[in-house]
Design a protein around this nucleic acid. Structure first.
Lengths: 155, 155
DNA sequence: TATTGTTATACTCTATAACTATA
DNA sequence: TATAGTTATAGAGTATAACAATA
């Protein structure tokens, strides 16, 4: 997304009137989300880690043995689209699929030892990213307040 | 996005541990944004109006005569991608391009009379959508607080 | 030379339908 | 019949390069 300031000077000195966009929750939510994802992307540029990979690694690490479809649904990812994500994590040696003994249809997901180690480093990088955001917000209290307000929208 | 609750019961009664995702600003921001855009999409299903169309109509209405590239940059849209948006608004008879007299390269944008009328109805629909969100948040004070926190991230 | 609008193109993300193997 | 994983595919949204017209 282009870097710009609201009510920025443009157009030969005339200010652009953003009208009610400045108070549109969806618009401001979208802009903030893009800003945060941009920072996330730069933080993980070396690892080539996308937000979806990050969330899958966290959930599988905390819930070893979950079915693919359970991880996918928990994260709001269609199971069809989850296949490529699991493929990539498996090819990178970070996760593995194991066929369930009791139901041969299901693939249970686990992190490899290398995956667990990768996740630990990933979390260190993530905390730096997150701390930068918390500082922008003004502190942990503001972070908590933001999360609480976002939660009211989501649930 | 799939409808789900955090820490929802899944996996035969075992709760899924979302680990630090519950306190990840980017993740919760993304979820909230998807929820709001989903509501926006349903609110404007009849008009077939996308968020980008909405923001362009608002900015052009409030700033008649802006150049295409100015509108695009203000909204964080690449000028190449803006062409199709302007095409569609023009084809629907809502906006029009007028070649500048002083600089024959630039296309200045204006809403048609029909476009202005459309925008007024659009705003009525939008306010219902927005009021629904404000109610979820708890009231106008919470809305203002959320916008303020989002602003700290964005700028 | 630089800028505006444009076209073409590619890449990511997301959504849907249909197949397979198992249950 | 139903479910889990998979494949194929299509549609958004977004990013970059290059071109024509104009400055």
């Amino acid at each position: 997304m282009a870097v710009f300031e609201q009510d920025e000077m443009q157009n030969d000195g005339r200010r652009i009137d953003f009208s009610i966009l400045v108070e549109a929750i969806g618009y401001q939510l979208r802009r903030a989300q893009l800003t945060v994802f941009q920072d996330f992307h730069e933080s993980f540029a070396n690892e080539g880690l996308r937000p979806a990979d990050f969330s899958v690694l966290l959930v599988v690490s905390a819930n070893p043995g979950l079915k693919q479809s359970e991880v996918a649904e928990a994260l709001g990812i269609q199971r069809a689209n989850f296949v490529a994500i699991a493929d990539s994590l498996e090819q990178r040696g970070l996760a593995e699929r194991r066929k369930s003994e009791t139901d041969r249809r299901v693939q249970a997901l686990y992190l490899t030892e290398r995956g667990e180690e990768f996740a630990r480093g990933m979390l260190r990088t993530w905390r730096i990213h997150e701390d930068r955001l918390v500082e922008k917000l003004g502190g942990p209290a503001e972070r908590d307040r933001l999360l609480e307000l976002l939660g009211r929208i989501t649930r």
